[in-house]
Design a protein around this nucleic acid. Structure first.
Lengths: 234, 234
DNA sequence: AAAAACATATCAATCGATTGACTTATTACG
DNA sequence: CGTAATAAGTCAATCGATTGATATGTTTTT
């Protein structure tokens, strides 16, 4: 079995590339919906419109397809958040190089942007299976966890830590800032994880564009009420 | 008719009750760890030390065992949170009957208690499989979801809504209070759902007693910083 | 022709469930 | 009381269906 494509995409694989793409696209949906064990190879290939044999042929095994799907997912997500991440990251590095510090207002603006992107990406309907893929991978890490964590979670979390550190006026590396970073993530993630309970409690039929807009507003509010512990609290 | 049999547990079922108990206890762990599809009947019966046939005999089917396990879980949880829930619930009803309203300080105290209970129940290690059972049931509802939601989630959420309504000085039924209730839940739940990422970011080896204490402190802080939108924010 | 891509027909393993025989406990009856 | 009849509980053996993977043949491209 030789499906190595080390340096270049051979012209011969024009057909193959289409098949791979179809399979990855379908696998992202099927794996996201049913998980690794829950998704059968028949299901995966039928959803992609390819033969059962295509899995061992192109990806070696079911597990190979899964790992490839995880990387495909990260690439897809990067097309959605890559710009924002690069922009904020560059801004932070520019400040570092100039020896200047991030203003609180800027930090709030960036943090709001990140959380609102999380809403769109995690709670929205069109990316439902993606989100389930990621949540599942967090809760029960598989072989692909390290890649997903390093590629998506970690950079986002550490960027969030820095921003929250500025807003709370604390060390971004402190335990407290790390904890508060996770609480903010959880504040959004809960609308995906407890999806059924959310629909029941909010009296929503589904999470459509209208609901996403409400949650984006909520994300902005969460950043607004975030602040250093004030002495003058009753 | 010298001996009543109908009201009390029949002497005949003493053995059966032991077997059922063993099976439910083992099933709670196995289902929690691997999910419904992931747990095999062999696994379930071997963990309980009973024969494969015990599942159809006592619970009709694997699904019957699963539903029974969900109800068993709720009973177990009730032994942990039942007292608190009853105490707060009674207090609220007493106030209602007297036409009095809940003070903000009391609301904060109760809410902190609820969140800290969530920490112990969801994040602690000894109840890890329980928590995973519940989280899984939320994310991919099965036949047992309605029971779990009605029995555990809903009463807790609606009690939280009432308390948060007092603190935010808003209508507990409003959309905003509902949203903020979920964000609080998510702030704790995230430490279970993104467990692997939490360990990596917090540089923890595991979530033991020490970490639970830290998270209980975080829960208290989250209630502290909760308040009606203040005008004097810079 | 040679390689790449696709398809058919299986494989052994495991799934949940069922069968029917077996042991133990409870009830019925003399 | 004692003992046979009945029910309750346990067990190994096995069912058809499905799982991921493979062996091998066919078509397409170079």
């Amino acid at each position: 079995m030789n499906q190595e494509r080390d340096t270049q995409t051979p012209l011969a694989s024009a057909r193959a590339e289409i098949a791979r793409q179809k399979m990855l696209s379908a696998a992202l949906d099927v794996f996201g919906r049913y998980g690794f064990d829950g998704a059968s190879t028949r299901q995966l290939t039928e959803a992609a419109g390819v033969n059962l044999q295509a899995i061992p042929y192109y990806f070696g095994s079911k597990e190979g397809l899964y790992i490839a799907t995880a990387e495909y997912l990260m690439a897809r997500i990067d097309t959605h958040v890559g710009d924002m991440r690069a922009r904020i990251g560059t801004h932070l590095m520019t400040l570092d190089a100039a020896g200047k510090s991030l203003s609180e207002a800027e930090a709030r603006r960036f943090l709001t942007e990140i959380l609102q992107t999380m809403v769109t990406l995690f709670v929205g309907k069109e990316s439902e299976s993606w989100a389930r893929f990621l949540v599942r991978e967090q809760m029960e890490p598989t072989e692909a966890f390290a890649r997903v964590y390093q590629g998506i979670m970690r950079p986002m979390i550490e960027m969030g830590r820095r921003l929250i550190g500025v807003i709370l006026r604390e060390d971004p590396a402190s335990e407290h800032v790390r904890l508060r970073t996770f609480t903010l993530i959880g504040s959004i993630l809960v609308f995906r994880v407890t999806h059924a309970a959310v629909l029941a409690q909010m009296e929503w039929d589904a999470v459509g564009a209208e609901q996403v807009e409400i949650l984006r507003g909520l994300a902005a509010e969460l950043v607004d009420v975030l602040g250093p512990s004030k002495a003058g609290a009753a």
